[in-house]
Design a protein around this nucleic acid. Sequence first.
DNA 1: CTGAAACCTGAATCACCATTCATGTTAAAG
DNA 2: CTTTAACATGAATGGTGATTCAGGTTTCAG
Lengths: 221, 221
Amino acid sequence: MSSVPCAAVTRSGNVSNASAAPALPKTARGARTRARILKAAEETFGSTGFHRSSIADITRTAGVALGSFYNYFAGKEDVLRELVQHMGRQLRAHLEAETADARDRLQAEEKGLRAFLQYLCANPALYRVLQEAQFVDETIYRDYYQAFGERYLGMLANATGKGEIRPGNNEVRVWALMGMSNFLGMRYALWDQSAAFEDIVAVVSDLLRNGLTTDSSEERT
Amino acid sequence: MSSVPCAAVTRSGNVSNASAAPALPKTARGARTRARILKAAEETFGSTGFHRSSIADITRTAGVALGSFYNYFAGKEDVLRELVQHMGRQLRAHLEAETADARDRLQAEEKGLRAFLQYLCANPALYRVLQEAQFVDETIYRDYYQAFGERYLGMLANATGKGEIRPGNNEVRVWALMGMSNFLGMRYALWDQSAAFEDIVAVVSDLLRNGLTTDSSEERT
DNA sequence: CTGAAACCTGAATCACCATTCATGTTAAAG
DNA sequence: CTTTAACATGAATGGTGATTCAGGTTTCAG
């Protein structure tokens, strides 16, 4: 079922059966070409999907010859890996910038969700590329959320320390929060943008502040 | 880019470019064979993934000849569609049974999440098949969550009427809740089962009851 | 019992596409 | 201005796997 003639370690340190990724370009021209291919891959994977996209589609979009692709990437999986890492860095930087001036954790959650929805609107390929990567090589996907989750966890821990949120299992909370954002983004930023982002943010903010239940509902063990 | 020689309407009513699905089997033998193929598809897609699975893999697992597949399904996409619908019905029935005796909405959420995590543990193929379906034919995926969301929405509306949960935008809440379950299931039922489901349920229950913030955090406009 | 419909079979067909490679072109160090 | 490494090119190769089909077998209604 699995024939692995020669295992190799990629640029990112993962073990893989793909041939090693070519070295980074050494001239300005090379860097430009590589960037164009990466961008074209984002467009193509994002609109057509990973499996339906051929390398030829990518190079045509990039305006380079088919063979040029292999001067920069070991294959289809390799370019996907690079792409997800690149997009992950971009998104994290964006969210960090947008939430930097938050007064407290709750406001950071509001700003973060709003920024995420906007980002997804402007970069719909992110969602598709990431989700499809999951079934090409699960480590790509896990690494993405691992990185995301760790930063998030640190922030919740910090907020707990400051007394902004109640003590609790912040790891589970992080995955719950990431899941919420993910689904709300899919539903309201990608599928149907008829709802105002402010409304969505308000609903989530209310949920994080007060929960769902009425005040009359007493605690029960 | 897209050549659609003959559009057709499938059994499920969706417009598709695939040839129409064969009629349902008319003998007991046929029904048995169809069921075996569907089950084999679940196993194969679930473990190997949709794109890496060949029709030959499925029929080999099912113990039938390659050609038999096309007596029951129009092709790879068609069997995926049938599978997702089948799995969706199963899961909904399971959750409904498990939450039927809940005292109030909050307890129904607890029982529902617990049941979902257990179900996912026992049927890991559900997640993979469903998620991959998204990129084969998005309507398969949307229909699944549409159906799920509508039932869920009705329940929240009912709970709001009874005063069990505060009035609010229940549609957005539904997508937030589905996202939470989805991610928690992926993380704690599929990836790593080291955490006790009870702990996860407790964290979510607490979140839905009290939110994340400390009580001292006053409402701000 | 009997014929027609339903079902089974798997080798052959055929389109698609990832990857390679031999050859030509460009960049830039010395 | 050379010279060489880097880069560009796209036709050719080769493997894969979905789908078809023509001919056999089983079921079952009448």
